[in-house]
């Protein structure tokens, strides 16, 4: 318990700076697996047009059997073809773009909303804080998926709308975490000290509170991408997410599920892609929590 003298004094308790984070991340095999999966998916998404000889929407003449059934994986179509005779691998590669874009955009927006709400409520308290946190409680009482489906039905779903819908549903968790953390930081002595020296709220927030929030925002930001990817896939599977012909891993399964008993690869491959990406962000997020947030030890410590 005798870490450094700085921690016991009234001075700011610096969380371990995220500087050595990458090195420590790379010393954990599971985090490396996660990073590798994320790397592969990102590579596939960026270079999709060059990795495959087929176009996303190309309905291949030889892509269906004579009876009109999709082809199982073979030498030409590595993962087989879908109901319309399109190359499944190509659709999955382009679908990675959808997943990553939504994962990053939606999660970025929900991080921004969640942090803003959490910091405001946690620092200013008073009636603003009370209203914000009661509203957060209210959002927690909604079944997340049902709310997302209702929202998606209100707007005509496009890629960006889906991202916004997911952000509007997902910010709540982050708001609660940031709120609790902000409250505990702003009760610390160094914040009082700073205030008594005449620092304004803006200065205290940006110089003293925000830096302490960086670790948990990084951790929850990473874990949140996994939640986002899963929610996008689910909405698209239900037909209220990203709309065909834009490929998404969820809507590939939505489009082909009537045929899945005869052509299970049409569910298996995109399903495996969703699972792999969500798992990857969970593994990396858990490792980051271990490294950055000593109060909440990750499970694989």
């Amino acid at each position: 318990m005798s870490a450094t003298t700085e921690e016991t004094s009234a001075g700011p308790v610096r969380r371990r700076a995220p500087r050595g984070t990458l090195r420590r991340l790379l010393s954990r095999p599971l985090a490396v697996v996660g990073l590798a999966i994320i790397g592969i998916v990102t590579f596939g998404a960026i270079f999709a047009p060059w990795l495959t000889p087929y176009g996303v929407d190309d309905q291949m003449f030889d892509g269906l059997t004579l009876q009109g059934a999709p082809l199982p994986p073979n030498g030409h179509f590595l993962l087989g073809t879908d109901l319309l005779g399109r190359d499944l691998l190509t659709r999955i590669l382009f679908g990675a773009r959808t997943s990553l874009i939504i994962g990053i955009v939606a999660n970025g927006v929900s991080l921004a909303i969640g942090s803003a709400v959490g910091i405001t409520a946690g620092y200013f308290r008073g009636w603003v804080g009370t209203i914000l946190m009661r509203f957060t409680d209210l959002m927690m009482a909604f079944p997340a998926l049902l709310l997302a489906i209702c929202l998606a039905a209100v707007f005509t779903p496009s890629l960006w709308i889906v991202a916004m819908v997911i952000a509007l549903v997902n910010w709540v968790q982050i708001a609660r975490v940031v709120y609790t953390e902000t409250r505990s930081i702003s009760e610390r002595e160094f914040v009082d000290a700073e205030r008594s020296l005449g620092a304004g709220s803006m200065r205290i927030l940006t110089k003293h509170i925000l830096p302490h929030l960086v670790p948990i925002i990084i951790v929850w930001g990473t874990l949140g991408i996994s939640v986002t990817v899963l929610l996008e896939a689910t909405l698209s599977y239900l037909g209220v997410g990203v709309q065909p012909p834009t490929p998404s891993w969820g809507n590939i399964i939505f489009e082909n599920q009537t045929y899945f008993q005869a052509a299970p690869w049409l569910v298996f491959f995109p399903g495996a892609a969703i699972l792999a990406l969500a798992l990857a962000f969970n593994l990396v997020g858990d490792a980051l929590r271990d490294i950055l947030d000593p109060t909440q030890r990750g499970i694989l410590s």
Binding site: Q257, Q261, G271, L275, N282
Partner: peptide, 18 residues
Amino acid sequence: SFVGVSAPQFVTGLLLLY
């Protein structure tokens, strides 16, 4: 357990069905 929390439910369901 990580796979459990990362698996989309419709995929789990369809696979179990299959």
